[in-house]
């Protein structure tokens, strides 16, 4: 069995599923943010795979932009977490139940 784009897409899909599972399953917001990064990474892998398959550089250039946006998103997300931790002394999602009632 030769390795083609299909196998790379399968790995990408598995990674995306694991990332989504992490966001839904965990209650620690730090791990949730990491799972978000995992999902973005899975999309990167699929984009590079298609870029290689179609002999076209546009997909790889898009990965460049995704990496930049991911870095900005993590910085802002972690700053929000720091502010949250200062107020509530916890980063667990089930402790943040102010709007629960």
């Amino acid at each position: 069995m030769t390795i083609g784009i299909n196998e790379f897409l399968t790995v990408s899909g598995l990674l995306f599923s694991i990332g989504m599972f992490g966001v839904l399953f965990r209650r620690n917001t730090i791990i949730m943010l990491m799972s978000l990064e995992l999902m973005l990474n899975a999309v990167n892998l699929a984009l590079v795979g298609f870029s290689r398959h179609n002999q076209d550089l546009d997909g790889s250039l898009f990965v460049f932009f995704i990496i930049t946006v991911a870095a900005a998103e993590v910085a802002v997300g972690l700053a929000i977490l720091v502010g949250l931790y200062r107020k509530r002394e916890s980063v667990m999602a089930d402790h943040l139940n102010l709007l629960n009632d």
């Binding site: 390795i3 399968t10 599923s17």
Partner: peptide, 25 residues
């Protein structure tokens, strides 16, 4: 979450199955 994970896994794996066969050029 586990049910959603399973559903997504089945969907993704069946979606990619055989759609882009062949080695990389």
């Amino acid at each position: 979450a586990m049910i959603a994970f399973g559903l997504l896994l089945v969907t993704v794996l069946s979606f990619f199955k055989g759609s882009y066969d062949g080695p990389l050029s």
